[in-house]
Design a protein around this nucleic acid. Structure first.
Lengths: 112, 112
DNA sequence: CCCGATAGTTACTTTTTTGGTACTACGATA
DNA sequence: TATCGTAGTACCAAAAAAGTAACTATCGGG
């Protein structure tokens, strides 16, 4: 699992989920299918443009599935593909570390 | 481990190790202390400036330890702190996923 | 015939990140 | 006394990422 020449598995991961939003979006999809607006409202900081763009890239990389319902007004649902679900363990790991990091930060503050 | 209000453990993690270089640098330090130039040579794409900057931020966040030896020419060593080592499990997880991702990409190419 | 709703797109601007080159300090060596 | 080597800094430019605001499509309802 080491970096051999210029093929490094950690960098490979970063190349797929790098950037400011991808992981956050995937994390929102862990507990099920979401519509575009649901996603947007669960991430007030992201703009429609960014959300669309990141969702397209995740779709192209096969991590999520985009389902369009031929209705008006439009209905588009996003969900994790099996491949996307395989990323859950990484996110769980990140969530676990982040949780202890938050605890730690809180304690740092108190001792000041 | 969910997102509660605006405190999300995944986002907390990203705020510390987000960006293009942090994880890559930490991954280089997993198997021991490295000097500045060693780090740079193991990441030919990074510039001195970026490397310095990222190392400082990692140091400020308590993930790495910077040791300056009072010599000429200078010798500065970087290593993971205990806290930084606690991030190893996340990186292992990323490395594992990245490894299968590389396999997958290779197979996608062959079937084209 | 205008309005609302959803899921976008487009053009433009700002911000952030990254890169390039030159410069520094200091002692050792030739 | 000029040069080398390490680990940087300083300043400016370029590129990439992200944000802003306005615009689109379509159907149903008032």
């Amino acid at each position: 699992m080491d970096c051999i020449d210029n093929s490094c598995p950690v960098e490979a991961t970063l190349s797929v989920i790098g950037g400011k939003w991808k992981v956050i979006i995937l994390w929102r999809l862990v507990n099920g299918t979401k519509r575009f607006n649901e996603l947007q409202h669960s991430m007030p900081q992201i703009t429609r443009k960014m959300l669309t763009q990141q969702l397209r890239e995740l779709e192209n990389d096969g991590l999520i599935i985009r389902t369009v319902y031929p209705q008006v007004p439009p209905k588009v649902e996003y969900s994790l593909s099996d491949y996307g679900k395989s990323f859950n363990s990484v996110m769980e790991s990140m969530a676990h570390w982040g949780f202890t990091h938050m605890e730690r930060s809180r304690q740092d503050q108190q001792s000041m």
